[in-house]
Simulated scan of single mutants.
Amino acid sequence: MTNSSTDQHSTPTPAELREQIEHTRHELGDTVQALADKTDVKARAQQKAGELKEQAVVKAGELKVQAAKATSQVQDKLPDPVKEKAALAAGQARTAAAQAGRMWEEKAPASLQQRTSQSAQLAREHRTLLLVAAAGLTVLWVARRKG
């Protein structure tokens, strides 16, 4: 581990010693920083959480696309009379929901209405996730009925 300058001189010059010391100091600093990074559990956990969140977003997007395709395929296979009955049932469900909503406003305690309102807001904020879950359940239900 000798270099040409130390071969020419029997002892290293002060400049060479300073250079060696600076190089060693730099390597030691890098090693200490690497060890500090490994022991920073909070930072590593945050990094891992970020990676997992990114993976979840990607997977949710994939599932959304798959659910949309499956829903489209199921709808394409449904006969027109079934589609008409579904549309009629949906209209009746909307009417019944409106009536239930009016009754709810008249008879439910204010505290319960407030908690329900907060839950509804939460559902609206996570609408995509709920729609993907509902589509997945619909596909499973249709697959079971055919099987």
Rank of each mutant, 00 (worst) to 15 (best):
K53I: 06
K59G: 00
D76K: 15
G147D: 02
L63Y: 03
S4Q: 15
L130W: 02
R18K: 09
T6P: 04
Q92K: 08
D40R: 15
T39E: 12
S72W: 10
K77C: 08
I21R: 15
S4V: 07
T6W: 10
A120W: 13
S72E: 05
A86L: 08
A49D: 06
L122D: 14
K42Y: 05
E19T: 12
A97W: 10
A43C: 07
N3L: 08
A67M: 11
T138D: 07
A89H: 04
L140C: 01
R94A: 12
V41C: 07
R145M: 11
A93Q: 12
D80Y: 07
A110R: 02
A60T: 02
G147W: 02
Q8S: 10
A96N: 09
D40S: 02
E105I: 11
R44I: 09
Q99Y: 03
K42F: 02
V74C: 09
A93I: 01
Q99W: 05
Q55C: 01
R44C: 11
R144E: 11
Q55F: 14
T2K: 08
Q33V: 05
Q73I: 00
Q66T: 11
L17M: 12
E84I: 06
G91H: 08
S72L: 13
A60G: 13
T128Q: 12
H126R: 12
Q118S: 09
G29E: 09
A100H: 15
R18N: 05
R127A: 13
E22M: 08
Q113K: 15
G147Y: 04
D76Y: 00
L17Y: 00
P81K: 04
Q33P: 01
A70V: 01
E19P: 01
L78G: 01
R44D: 03
T116Y: 14
A87K: 09
A60E: 03
A43K: 15
Q20I: 13
L35I: 15
R115E: 14
K107S: 05
R124G: 05
H23D: 03
T116A: 06
V82G: 04
V139H: 06
K53Y: 03
D37Q: 15
T95D: 09
L52W: 01
E106M: 07
E105R: 14
L52D: 10
A97P: 03
V57H: 10
H26T: 11
R127I: 08
S4M: 10
R115G: 09
R18S: 10
V139S: 05
